[in-house]
Simulated assay, not measured.
Amino acid sequence: MTDEKLTAQLAPHLRLLAALRATGNVTRTAELLGIPQPTVSRRLAALSRALGAPLTVPAGRGVRLTRAAELLAEAAERALTAVDAGVRLAREEVEPGSGRVVLGFLHLLGRALVPELLRDYRAQVPDARFTLVQGSRQDMLDRLAAGELDLALLAPVPEEDERLGSVVLDEQPILLSVPAGHRLAGRSAVRVAELADEPFVLLEPGYGLRRITDDLCAAAGFAPTVAFEGQESDTVRGLVAAGLGVALLPLFEPGAPAGVAEVALTPPVTRTIGLAWRAGEPQPPAVRSFRDHVVTAYPRRINRRTK
């Protein structure tokens, strides 16, 4: 059988191969696809005959794919990703107002920015649907590159990555947060070098604020002494309030929380907040519409770079 004929025979069963690879079990594959188990078995037997080699071998109470079947299943998963994206584009081209946007964002931005943007957009497009994903900056960048996200709200904006298009929405001051009774609490400004002997409460590696802190400390000639690491800035502030260390964090609005004093850095330090997406790829109408709304409607944007 020629490659073309084998491809034509395999194409209708891409999901079967991908599902079998994921489950390792014929019965669960049948349940996942919503077809009878004998149908799955017959299709696998027909594909094995067409390939000229078995696709599965017994493995305990289930099966595992042969090396040849693994290669086909990997190709099937890649092809299905492209097909699913095409189906979504076509469906939302017909009904853009009810399309879905998968939006990633940092935990910190979920307090005010994300609800504000969604509220304003849903007022204009009431049937718009969103899937919201939170995580670290690096996690958002990885998911965006992998196609798991349509858009991501990040800080700082990844302007150095040519694979991404982005727009800067805001510039946010970074301040020193210390316990209210700390020796630096009453200062008008503090140099980062003065913090060399302080214990730090930090976000985990992969977060934008962690990178900013590490870079500022390195530029001042020291590595921060890590007292605690967390995944949310609110947790970091709580640990600072408890007297467990200092932290470099964005300005807390409307004012510093109880037990925390915010002190300006000198020279001043800021970070950008913005929206990013994969460059050079067609976007579903719903994604394009929300992106354009953010770019044009957000009042504090300071500069933009789109692709």
Score class of each variant (00 low, 15 high):
Arg100Asp: 03
Gly147Ser: 07
Thr131Ile: 14
Asp120Gly: 13
Val168Cys: 15
Phe200Arg: 06
Gly181Val: 07
Leu141Glu: 12
Arg137Leu: 12
Pro126Ser: 12
Leu117Asp: 01
Arg111Ser: 12
Phe200Gly: 05
Leu132Pro: 01
Leu202Asn: 07
Val133His: 09
Gly165Trp: 09
Ala145His: 15
Pro199Asp: 13
Val101Ile: 10
Gln124Ile: 09
Ala112Gln: 12
Arg191Ala: 15
Val168Asn: 11
Leu108Met: 12
Ser177His: 15
Thr131Val: 15
Arg163Val: 13
Arg187Phe: 09
Leu108His: 10
Phe200Cys: 08
Ser136Tyr: 01
Arg163Met: 07
Arg191Trp: 05
Ala146Asp: 13
Ala180Arg: 14
Asp139Met: 02
Leu153His: 04
Gly135Val: 00
Leu141Lys: 01
Leu132Glu: 08
Asp161Tyr: 01
Asp142Tyr: 03
Gly181Arg: 14
Ser166Arg: 12
Glu171Met: 12
Ala193Arg: 15
Glu148Phe: 09
Leu175Lys: 11
Leu202Ser: 08
Ala112Val: 14
Arg137Pro: 00
Val157Met: 01
Ala128Cys: 05
Leu109Val: 01
Asp120Met: 08
Gly186Thr: 09
Leu132Val: 03
Thr131Asn: 05
Leu141Ser: 02
Leu117Pro: 00
Leu195Pro: 03
Gly186Met: 05
Leu184Cys: 08
Arg191Tyr: 08
Ser188Leu: 10
Ala180Asn: 07
Phe105Lys: 00
Ala196Met: 03
